[in-house]
Amino acid sequence: MSLRQWLPPPQKMSDAIQLRAPGFANTTMRQSLGMVVLLGLLAGFLPFLFNWGQATAAGSALPLARLAAVGAMLNASLLERGAMNQAPIQFVSGLFGLAQLGELFQTIAGLEQPFPGWFTAFLSALGEWINWPLRWLSLWIVYGALVMVCNKALGAANRLQPFFAATGFAAAPLLLSGLAPIPCLGRVGSVAGVIWAVIVYARANEEVTGLPRSRSLIAVFLPVFFVLLFSLLVTVLSVLSALLLVVRV
């Protein structure tokens, strides 16, 4: 099995990100899958190095290093308030105060683990790195399935494989989101990458479904409203059930 079967030619990628129609044709789902995974790994490489460095400095796993950073931030903000003669923020809950929470986070991060610090840091940063292509894969497949349902409802006649093959090209501009650890430039790059990816996705959908632009755009954005509506419903239900539980207890 050659690399060609797993990746589209660079010219196709170039055409796709420039929104040219030939970029979205004659690509297989296998090639798109390979592209999404490879680009996800590439995008996650710089954050991986950054995370590894951060966790190694803390001598612990990445989540604990982040917890320690939050703890330090909480303590610093409390000291700042004290220096400015402002009243300290009282309890965030009935159990923990902010200062206590900050201290707890730092204590947990300071606990010794069986593995050496650098290796723990490497393992956790590696896991976080592998999550990059997995997140992109989730977005591509799950959001794609929802868009496909909308496409069908709006009269498209295409099949799943060519749809996934074409929409996979949206991963190419997302490569910019890998610049995130760079101050300033990273945020601008991430935002630009996401907007560009949405445009490429909409263009790919229009090209592969053959729907008029307005309908294709509706199909691409309708799932966002569904997802928002569903999240709202889940939140309301969770709040209601929590209230019921509190009333019962």
Binding site: L123, L126, G127, N131, L134, R135, S138, I141, V142
Partner: peptide, 13 residues
């Protein structure tokens, strides 16, 4: 690999 998380929604969809 520790800290790798797979979205359940991806598996189901």
């Amino acid at each position: 690999i520790p800290y790798v998380s797979i979205a359940t929604v991806l598996i189901h969809v």
